[in-house]
Design a protein around this nucleic acid. Structure first.
Lengths: 195, 195
DNA sequence: CGCGCGATTGAGTAATTTCAAATCTAGTGG
DNA sequence: CCACTAGATTTGAAATTACTCAATCGCGCG
């Protein structure tokens, strides 16, 4: 497990054994039950989470009571309400657990401490933040330029596992379409494939 | 002008006179003509730009030749193709000038140098990156949860000046709707106001 | 076995796009 | 200063896309 996490970090930034032990000492391991909520709208956001095993979602309830999915997080992904986490504000979104999960937990103060003592880790989080920016920008472009079918196909080709693991109505929320439309798209897809 | 820029930085991070002079020495001032393109798809992205005066846009041409607006940048805003700038990749978007503009130009290497020598400026750019994340996330939520009229009204209330300065068809591209729909919304708005 | 949630299907409706044409406007050259 | 043009905006009508509502289906779990 420690090894898996180290691999994750070292995809971006190589570390000596001592450096990794220093980094790792700031994290706590935690099990999260299915349906459990780790960040609730209106509450402080203490931590950022790295998913070792399982599946989480970050979602927003709009004024009409509709749920919108901001992101999923599978193995190897980070998740929190960044806006609230960084600025010590109250959460504006919920983060909860779709499958029983194991995560590594990092508190705000531990993250700050780690970054001030390790240039490499400050750099790591900077790169992660930039990658997140790029991903969000790509998502904006997709929402601006693609219709439902194109968005569905894009997700299908980029994250086929999500489609299998996540209830369809949540996939619909993530793509910005109704569950009925998504259902029709998946039927169409199956027929298209046969032909 | 120097003063305006200093105010911008100090909204986030306070600096001594010496620190500011150090920071400022890394920037070059430049005038950009209307319609001039400062970042072209496929070319390297050397710089990030801070708009002192004028108006720029970052846009993407999709496979059907439709233009989509990723962001505008008015006075006091930063703009570049961050993905390409940070990772030294070729640009995937275009950045061009809607009004004759004056900008401060910062190259990648000067930015790195500045950040490695000044903890404060590293912090400044980290905060900017986080703010950008938050803004993009908000935009995703808006695109997921609001219809055209709500998106139009949101832009109208948050950036009324943009509506006045930017050609309407570009506003439509930014909001993800056709120029005809935007035109109908603005007519409706004028009638609603009268009633 | 039956309940309940998620997924599917059908029908009708609403929102938005597309295409085509008419106006309007700012900038240019004479 | 005026006429002219290219680009931008508006308008109408038809076509398309996606949504909503309602009903049904299917499956896992107690």
């Amino acid at each position: 497990m420690k090894n898996k996490f180290r691999q994750h970090i070292e995809k971006t930034t190589s570390l000596t054994d001592e450096e990794f032990d220093f980094v790792f000492s700031h994290f706590k391991r935690k099990q999260i039950d299915k349906k459990q909520c780790i960040i609730k709208k209106g509450k402080p956001v203490e931590n950022v989470y790295w998913v070792l095993k399982g599946l989480m979602k970050a979602s927003y309830l709009d004024l009409n009571g509709k749920q919108h999915i901001i992101q999923f997080a599978m193995e190897d992904w980070w998740i929190t309400d960044y806006q609230a986490f960084i600025n010590k504000e109250k959460a504006t979104i919920d983060v909860s657990c779709l499958e029983t999960s194991e995560v590594l937990v990092l508190s705000f103060s531990d993250r700050e401490k780690m970054c001030s003592e390790s240039q490499k880790m400050a750099n790591f989080f900077r790169i992660k933040s930039n990658a997140s920016n790029a991903a969000l920008q790509k998502r904006v472009l997709t929402l601006l330029s693609s219709n439902s079918e194109e968005r569905y196909n894009e997700l299908l080709s980029e994250h086929p596992k999500l489609l299998q693991r996540v209830p369809k109505h949540l996939i619909a929320s993530y793509l910005g379409l109704s569950r009925e439309t998504l259902s029709r798209l998946s039927v169409k897809k199956r027929i298209d494939v046969k032909i």
